[in-house]
Each structure stands twice: as structure tokens, then as C-alpha cells.
């Protein structure tokens, strides 16, 4: 447990540093301005990972704890919520996404051989699978949002 926490902290420092630099190059936010935000996000993530380790019931994924924790901490009226929102606003979402997909790319390379063996039928069905889920949700959401007059 302690070893895991140490490992996570070190990894978050590495990833956080990359996000700060990416955030600076791509979105012109000075690293020191975004530092409190990235530290906040890291602490929330770390707390979620630790809660997941401590709770014996493992069916709830750790990202659920992280999402809910971050959500609760920033509900208007919760002490400190405004400060957390102000800090984390400086960390651009796209700056977080870039290192994720860079790691993903390097990890994906190993599946490339399998991928090239898939055949054209799988590729077509695969695109329909992704589009179906995405468009299906979007259409349902759109209809209901319009019915409610939100959009």
C-alpha cells in the first residue's frame, strides 16, 4: 500500500510536470500559475486511488471515487470549492489529454500486429460500433434536452 502510494506520487510528479509544460506551450498558461491546479487535481486523484485500495468492495472503479470526490469538493457552497475551481481552471483539459494519448500510442504499438490481421470487415464493423454508441447517445440526449427546452 505505502509502496503503491509512493509510486503514484512519483508518477504524478512526472505527469504533472509534463502537463504544466504542455499547458504552457499549447495554451500559454505560465507553469507557476497552473501549479496549484495540477497539485489539486493530483491530490484528488491520489485520494481516489487510496480509497479504492482501502475499500474491500472492488466493483466500484477508482475513477468513480475520483470523479465523485472532485465533484463534491467543487459544489457551490462547499468550503474551499471556489478556490479549487479557480486553481484548476488554469489547467487546460487538452494539456492533460496530450500525455495520456502519448502514453497510449506507445502502449498501442504492441497491438499493431494484431490490428493489421483484423481484416476489412472488422474495421467496418468497428467504426459502426463506435459511431453507433456515440451518435446513439448524442441523438437521445439531443431529443431530451430539446424537449426540456435546455438547448
Amino acid at each position: 500500500m505505502l509502496k503503491s502510494v509512493k509510486e503514484w506520487v512519483l508518477l504524478f510528479i512526472i505527469i504533472g510536470f509534463m502537463v504544466l509544460i504542455g499547458n504552457w506551450i499549447g495554451y500559454s498558461v505560465m507553469p507557476f500559475d497552473a501549479l496549484p491546479g495540477i497539485i489539486t487535481l493530483t491530490l484528488i486523484s491520489l485520494a481516489g486511488l487510496i480509497i479504492h485500495q482501502l475499500v474491500p468492495y472492488k466493483k466500484i472503479p477508482s475513477i468513480a471515487y475520483i470523479g465523485i470526490l472532485a465533484f463534491i469538493l467543487t459544489i457551490p457552497g462547499v468550503p474551499g470549492s471556489e478556490q479549487i475551481v479557480a486553481w484548476t481552471t488554469d489547467v487546460n483539459l487538452l494539456a492533460i489529454a496530450t500525455p495520456i494519448l502519448a502514453y497510449a500510442g506507445i502502449s498501442i504499438g504492441r497491438s499493431w500486429d494484431l490490428f493489421t490481421k483484423l481484416g476489412w470487415k472488422t474495421i467496418i464493423v468497428g467504426m459502426c460500433v463506435l459511431l453507433g454508441s456515440y451518435l446513439g447517445s448524442a441523438v437521445v440526449a439531443d431529443i431530451i434536452l430539446r424537449m426540456q427546452g435546455i438547448i
Binding site: 505527469i15 484528488i44 486523484s45 481516489g48 470523479g67 465533484f71 467543487t74 462547499v78 475551481v85 492533460i96
Partner: peptide, 15 residues
């Protein structure tokens, strides 16, 4: 691990 930061970012936008 890096996705957890994205999820935290989602959360602080959702509150």
C-alpha cells in the same frame, strides 16, 4: 494513472 487526472478535471468542472 494519467487518465485519473482527467477524471479529476472532469469532476471539478462538474461541481
Amino acid at each position: 494513472i494519467s487518465v485519473t487526472l482527467l477524471i479529476a478535471k472532469f469532476g471539478v468542472q462538474a461541481g
